[in-house]
Design a protein around this nucleic acid. Sequence first.
RNA 1: CGGGGCGUAGCGCAGCCUGGUAGCGCAUCUGCUUUGGGAGCAGAGGGCCGUUGGUUCGAAUCCAGCCGCCCCGACCA
Length: 447
Amino acid sequence: MRLSPAVRLSEYFMPTLRETPSEAEIVSHRLMLRAGMIRQESAGIYSWLPTGYRVLRKIEQIVRDEMDRIGCHEVLMPTIQSADLWRKSGRYEDYGKEMLRITDRHEREMLYGPTNEEMITDIVAEHIKSYKDLPRMMYHIQWKFRDEVRPRFGVMRGREFLMKDAYSFDISPEAGRISYNKQFVAYLRLYARMGLKAIPMAADTGPIGGDMSHEFIILAETGESQVWCNTDLLELDLLNMDIDHRNAEQMSDVIGKVTSYYAATDEMHDEAKYQAEVPADKQMTARGVEVGHIFFFGDKYSAPMNAKVQTADGSFAPVQSGSYGVGVSRLVGAIIEACHDDNGIVWPEEVAPFKVGLINLRVGDEACDAACEDFYAKLQAAGVDVMYDDRDMRAGVKFADMDLIGLPWQVVIGPKGVANGIVELKSRKTGEKEELSPEAALAKLVG
RNA sequence: CGGGGCGUAGCGCAGCCUGGUAGCGCAUCUGCUUUGGGAGCAGAGGGCCGUUGGUUCGAAUCCAGCCGCCCCGACCA
């Protein structure tokens, strides 16, 4: 799981492109290709190259942290599933052509999983027999395949994609709401930690009904759906609300507050309600990208799949479930959509492939090399992720590459600065440059 | 799944209309000069022109099929 803390660009694989490959239309796709993060293998299917893969893993890790925090435990289910499992739930026929069906050498019908409700329900059915074993929550982070008619926008809508899907199991719908709320709170936190403003919006619950489905949408010009919301919602400091997930009442209050503001995608938008509830100066309409979807569906799968537990009075009841998805690979693109400028990507620090990019302006100059090596070693010793550009190339190329890949901090060390005992520290986000002693720069980066 | 477009060097493209030994820029390699925001000069390498078939003395170019990819719409984490 651990990411290597430091790399030298002279030995790293990061094939940056000066020109944009012609297939890429939207900004995140263009930048991911130009930054050498991914390579397309087939429509909607990508290889993840070193920098791209690092970002993917950083996002995964944030998701893990937040799942662990609410007592949701990681498992790993296979990508290949048996058709029989899906026949039990009735979805084998319903899913249609989006499901990739395959046959093994014994002519057994298999499929590449588009999701895992059936499998996790089957696991629970076998092992959970009593209401005393509930509640339980589990998740996994696994590749999914949905044979979209038209994959597009790079990793934002691939056919193969990495998803975190969590599942909750409770004895009653009331208990189910508590699990749902825990996930809701975890979602608020995990997106905030990635530097994103993800807005929870009521989603269509379909035949189940009720108010227990939300989509999490981040705002981006190239988003696929139109959204309307109250700007007050964007001001909430979600990370510092300090919610105790063991306190059901407090969680419920917080979620009540967050969901009290008007926020809707086009499929749920009610113009009259919007005009009535949201003051004119707080109205905002924008484009959004769905980066998560949570859903309570009761016994939809547990009933047909016979996942029952014995209750306190000795009778049997199907477990009550919900599922909670985060599009992990989609988030890589979505974050770039929300965080870039004309020169390239501007990573939020928590998901950046490296925190610091160290640029040696004159490789081969003894003093300059020594100063860079020293700084590089000290960053590593302090546990700071660093990419050291020790390639023997012109300054302009290094600056352009570093801006393109978007590491939050750039440390520029050149012969002139070395002679005067200073390095330059640049913030990718603000573009501000400071000339500092190496010690002062290091202190800022380690903090 | 409906509509549109594109496959020529690693990337971006020209050539195709009007058939006659495949070109430009960037990248790569060599040398020299340069060196704080994508350097200059000189030289070099690299192509089954997506694929199959047809027309023709001759096809990147014309015709047909197939494959792949992209865009717009309807659908999805």
